[in-house]
Design a binder for these strands. Structure first.
Length: 270
DNA sequence: GCACATGTTGGCAT
DNA sequence: CATGCCAACATGTG
């Protein structure tokens, strides 16, 4: 589920449930996800007031009035279930609010994570230290990309997946953005012209905004016990569409880069 | 049984 | 030190 738009949609779905609420209980139901839960998680959250929620790249942020920020990552299979009727095998972390709502972090593959850090020290959180700019922020420009990609021989596909260059993109949206910008996924990052970088920045912005809007349009359906998100896979133009026709009439191809599938149109993307 | 999956990272070679 | 590339993590689905 989770690249930047999915995390953004998730956070927006949690806001009406958690923001301004006091934590009645916080429970871990196993010792770890990708790494152990903070040992003092329950104590530091119980009784705390949730003051706000946010996102950095693919990480969700939940601030409390005690100066702590809960940081969660959804890994490959993580999602929050809102007011589940009952808890299941993969509901690894559960919080209840004083007004009776309950949220459960469900993650079968357990590639996700939960941490609790001092809000003032967020910038020093290990995954954030070398992280690149937000793709929807002002710092992400063609000028920035030109410098970040200078002399890089690796493919633009792999470079865009590198969170140090730009933070929040994953395999789906990289494929989609490259298609939208008409750039071949195997082009060396350092050899892309400025005008094409402009197109790429715009494509990345457009695809993320469209995905968030699609998530947003089904947001009212988000807070369901089964934890399903209304999803927008119908809008993918190349991802998961090997052998189908691109709008140009050519057939979408699939290749493997760095062990991951790349979907692209050999005609539109040069 | 097999292939594949929206992510991250540690290790190794260059 | 920088860069590029792989395997590994754990579980589910088709």
């Amino acid at each position: 589920m989770p690249e930047l738009p999915e995390v953004e949609t998730t956070v927006r779905g949690l806001v009406p449930v958690l923001q301004g609420q006091r934590v009645k209980s916080a429970e871990t139901r196993r010792a770890d996800l990708r790494w152990p839960f903070p040992p003092d998680l329950r104590q530091r959250l119980t009784g705390a007031l949730i003051t706000g929620l946010g996102r950095r790249a693919k990480y969700g942020l939940i601030d409390t009035d005690r100066g702590d920020t809960l940081i969660f990552h959804l890994g490959m299979s993580g999602k929050w279930r809102v007011d589940p009727a009952e808890l299941g095998a993969h509901d690894h972390f559960v919080m209840e609010t004083e007004d009776g709502r309950r949220v459960a972090l469900n993650d079968p593959r357990r590639f996700g994570s939960v941490d609790l850090v001092r809000t003032e020290a967020l910038a020093a959180y290990k995954p954030f230290i070398a992280m690149g700019p937000e793709p929807l922020g002002n710092a992400f420009t063609a000028d920035y990309l030109k410098i970040a990609l200078r002399d890089r021989s690796a493919s633009i596909k792999l470079l865009l997946l590198d969170q140090r260059i730009v933070a929040g993109l994953g395999n789906i949206y990289v494929c989609e953005a490259l298609h939208m910008a008409g750039i071949s996924p195997r082009t060396a990052g350092g050899r892309i012209s400025k005008p094409r970088l402009e197109a790429l920045v715009q494509a990345i912005r457009n695809v993320l905004v469209a995905a968030i809007e699609a998530g947003g349009s089904s947001l009212r359906d988000y807070a369901r016990p089964d934890g399903e998100l209304g999803y927008f896979s119908k809008e993918w133009r190349v991802y998961g569409r090997e052998g189908e026709e691109c709008h140009c009439g050519a057939l979408v191809r699939r290749r493997v880069d760095g062990g991951r599938s790349t979907f692209y149109c050999p005609t539109c993307q040069r």
